[in-house]
Amino acid sequence: MKLGLVTDCLADKTLKEAAQICSSLGLEQVELGCGNWSPAPHIDLDALISDTGKRRELTDTLAAHGLSISALNCSGNPLFPGEKGARDRAVMEKTFLLAEQLGLKTVVMMSGLPGGCPGDAMPNWVVSSWPPETQEILDYQWGVAIPAWEKIAEQANRHGVERLALEFHGWQLVYNVETFRRLRSAVGSIVGVNLDPSHLFWMGGDPLAIARELAGCIYHVHIKDVRLEPAAGANTLLDTKGVLEFAARSWNYVTPGSGHGEDWWRRFLAALGDVGYDGPLSIEQEDYTIPTMDALRQGAALMRRILAS
């Protein structure tokens, strides 16, 4: 396994500066956001697609600091109704093209989420079997999602992308093993998982058990932790406050080791190895409770220590 970083957390840095930081942290890879929910601080999709020289400059800058690209990330909502969905799909298609041009086989995405019925302008996430109309919503959503994802898989295949790594997350049609298997059975093995334990924690899942369930389906891994806060007792883990309101939230994204200790992370990497995973471990820094560089140093040191033992 190789340790890397989602570079969005270094959005105020140039690519060269970000690469220098990654090298100083002992990292080997970077995951580059291409748009949609990422600010894409280090990727100009249109410029890179149209200019061989700019693509060479990108890869040469990374190589000069001992780095390679683990994956491109175009996470957004390709199933969003109307124009918003069309814009997200356009970024997705350009990301597939750039992956082809760079010789990359993995793109990290999310499944997306449709509206709840024809004419809906906003997505609708169903997490309960009651009241009865929830089942009508789900039937409609899967009827929309499967043909849309069949088309997405075809587009990825045309560009030589072999692995679409979907991240289980709230407000997505695919957010657990069962929903993932439903989509994969319809679309094929090009659909796999970007396993991020942080979201599984706040949704009540067990990342170790989930890793074992996903043998052969894990295409990418994000390294990010969650800490449950005292407010959870009164407010539950269903928390709609913004991530910058961390002092009042029921749970927060935190640096690996700050929510679950080193022993847990050792068991997580062991579980990945047990199911044959030997791919990227991409640190995703979204801990707003401490300075970014402190978080990166702590997280990278923890993971390097585990990998070295």
Rank of each mutant, 00 (worst) to 15 (best):
A211H: 05
G259A: 03
S198M: 01
A232M: 12
S38A: 02
S189P: 05
C217N: 08
T289F: 03
Y140M: 05
Q135A: 13
G4T: 09
A231C: 04
F96M: 07
T236E: 10
E17P: 12
R305C: 07
A209T: 02
L79S: 11
R181N: 11
L25Q: 06
E31I: 05
V107Q: 15
Q20E: 13
V161R: 00
V226I: 11
Y253D: 02
I146P: 01
L48N: 09
P132R: 10
F180L: 14
K84Y: 10
D12P: 00
E57W: 04
W251S: 02
E178H: 13
M110Y: 11
N124S: 07
L307P: 14
G82L: 00
L208T: 09
P118F: 07
L27N: 06
G257L: 02
I137L: 12
G204L: 06
M303I: 15
I210E: 01
V254E: 05
D51T: 07
C22K: 00
M109H: 10
W202T: 09
N235E: 15
N36E: 07
I146C: 04
A300H: 06
A295T: 03
V254I: 04
V226W: 03
P256N: 10
A301M: 12
Q172S: 01
L138R: 04
R158E: 08
Y140P: 07
T292F: 01
P291A: 14
L3V: 02
N124M: 05
L62S: 11
A231Q: 15
Q172F: 05
D263K: 13
R181M: 06
V221W: 08
L164P: 06
L173Q: 06
T14S: 09
G53C: 09
G299Q: 12
M110N: 09
V177C: 08
H65I: 08
L281D: 05
P81C: 02
Y253K: 05
T106N: 07
L302M: 11
Q135N: 09
F80K: 14
G33Q: 05
N194Q: 04
L307E: 15
R212P: 14
R227L: 10
W130E: 14
N252H: 08
R267T: 02
A231G: 03
R227N: 03
T292L: 03
H222M: 04
G82F: 01
D239K: 05
A211L: 11
G35W: 08
R267G: 12
F96V: 00
E162R: 08
G160I: 07
K16A: 15
A209D: 04
T255F: 01
T7S: 11
H65C: 13
W202K: 03
R249G: 06
C34F: 08
L25H: 03
A234E: 15
R87N: 02
N194A: 01
S189N: 10
K54G: 00
E28C: 02
P256M: 04
A301V: 08
R227G: 01
L296K: 05
